[in-house]
Amino acid sequence: MSVGEYIRNSQIWKSVFRHPAPTDRRNRVVVMLTNFFLHLHPVSIKQQGIALSYTWCMGGITFFLFLVEAITGVLLMFYYRPTLEWAFYDIQALRDVQTLGIMREIHRWGAHAMVITVWLHMYRVFLTGSYKPPREFNWVIGVLLLVLTLLLSFTGYLLPWDQLAIWAITVGSNMAKATPFLGVEGPGFQVFNTSGYELITNASDAKFLLLGGRFVGEATLNRFYILHCVAIPIVVSGLTAIHFWRIRKDGGISQPL
């Protein structure tokens, strides 16, 4: 008995993979049904639906990049402290000292790539008319995922706390100040400030809510850190699960009727 065979016949192996290797038709079906990760997929699928020139694999790539971001992100969290005292220097150390410093590069380029692939995925879905019935609502979920991807990238942009970071966020968050009704420089906020009560001030408006302060400071760093590492990823994971589930329920990848 060869070593490989010995391992494959051991009780441990068999307890993990409950069937022989997927080399024949039957086991290729079984593997799709019993493996947790593979059960995202159907057992069989139309050939044109998985053609690279049809889907460009862009949704899949986006998902893969999300996983890469999650893994590299966790590694980065081991090194990074979100305080004014340390944030910048921890990132600098990742560049100059830490062995796994390249995680930062992969995380940053992966994030840029994810923004690009999510656009291209939407582009493909539009051009193949795949948002048409019965897939309307999955398109809506997709748009939410698009927004969240941009927000993930935006909140992450602040964390290195260098000039690039704080000014990009300053420019971006200045928009919140102009929110109609809810920002101190937005049209209509005066309706809340009548008869002596000042409801909307620069310490209570939309920008303040976003930044946790009047300007980009320690509270902002904390807020963005939690949004970036905890809150948004959880929501994205949930929506992605629904997105995938619905692809199956809507009849798989779109096809000519």
């Binding site: 290729r28 069989s44 699928i45 044109q48 998985i50």
Partner: peptide, 10 residues
């Protein structure tokens, strides 16, 4: 546009 098995094709 035949149906193919997801393992191995996809």
């Amino acid at each position: 546009n035949e149906k193919v098995l997801v393992w191995p094709d996809l």
